[in-house]
Write a protein that binds this DNA or RNA. Structure first.
Lengths: 204, 204
DNA sequence: CATTTCCGAAACGCACACGTATCGGAAAGG
DNA sequence: CCTTTCCGATACGTGTGCGTTTCGGAAATG
């Protein structure tokens, strides 16, 4: 599609910035974010972990928040693959929630834990965190719920927003607060309870 | 029950500690915890806010964690009043969840947000936070669920632990992550969905 | 009144991170 | 070759909080 160079502007003079350095810095930021949280993250530590000078970090990002925002953007999960038609809504919900139970998810949860506090004090950061770690998962669940409504497997009067929070809330609660296990068994129990309800004879 | 003095030991010599100072320090700790989070909390700020010298704080608490643990212990909510027999399980759940929507609860949520990160790194703190801000609410919901099972309004095979997290999870998720509103309308929608289920014709 | 402890205030040395500046060398273009 | 920019390293002054020490005065006991 493009030869690979100067697609815009007239190519700045002097030595160009090494794009690998950018990646190293963002990777170090994500690692330290998981280890020390947002407050515990220092630019000095990022530079040391990335093996670069402090100057090099400051040349690219003016402060901690833009750096963290960029680091988070690179954490956005891939768009989930479409669900085949022959899969029930129940099974589709389980698949959409499966992401929460993957071992890799523990790291994302630790990053999130380290950001919760700062989010309540900085709206820009909060927006970036939601875009990187929350929105895509919500969208996946939303698609399954709307599909379920079209197929008649979910009542049309159900509030999809509430249902999404009902499915994801317990995962977040256990990961951040209670420390209780988050696994496929839990996901199954949640889906069963939300789809079937707890009452023996629903009054509709 | 007691005259009010020397119920144990032989009364230490010298000037006794002013118990009001203890209360002032713990109150200042709670306030600053809500404002600045656990990482942002400094002993210096606590002393200044409480109007006491730094020495006075260190004489009572050796470090930040025991101080915060004690401050949290004083935040434990009162045991909820018993539920009358003529109240349905649905209504009882709504009452038990009502605590989440009280305006005062916003402060508790901010305190919790400031502690989530530190909890993942310090088990003692995590235990204290759960005892102060989580356990009592869970216990209230557990009682209602067991009562509902006895009354036949909740199926006996429902996992009470999962149901508790299902009811409380969305509240925590909205307060800490998404910032979406937490009110009585949400509580009602959650109870309805959990009790009735989302499927039009449950397969049991 | 002598003793003990508490109390607030202030100062201490220490460690850490901030954001900036300076340096010598490397990489790229004209 | 000359200029420009990048790069890592180092040093700088500033600010903040740590936990400790010292001080003068107040409160309580015997």
């Amino acid at each position: 599609m493009n030869a690979g160079v100067e697609l815009s502007a007239a190519r700045a003079p002097g030595r160009p910035r090494d794009p690998q350095v950018d990646r190293d810095i963002l990777t170090a930021t994500r690692e330290l974010l998981a280890e020390d949280g947002f407050d515990g993250l220092s630019i000095e530590a990022v530079a040391a972990r990335a093996g670069v000078g402090k100057t090099t970090v400051y040349r690219r990002w003016p402060s901690k928040i833009p750096l963290v925002v960029d680091a988070l953007t690179a954490m956005k999960p891939p768009t989930p693959s479409a669900i085949p038609d022959d899969v029930s809504t129940r099974e589709a919900l389980l698949r959409a929630m499966g992401g929460f139970t993957k071992p890799h998810e523990g790291s994302a949860a630790r990053v999130l834990a380290g950001l919760v506090d700062a989010m309540s004090r900085n709206e820009e950061l909060a927006t970036a965190v939601r875009a990187a770690l929350v929105t895509e998962r919500q969208r996946g669940l939303m698609e399954v719920i709307e599909r379920g409504k079209r197929r008649g497997e979910i009542r049309p009067d159900v509030d999809a927003r509430v249902m999404i929070d009902l499915l994801g809330g317990p995962m977040v609660l256990r990961r951040l607060i209670t420390g209780d296990p988050v696994n496929q068994r839990l996901a199954l129990a949640i889906v069963d309870l939300v789809m079937d309800g707890a009452a023996p004879a629903p009054s509709r």
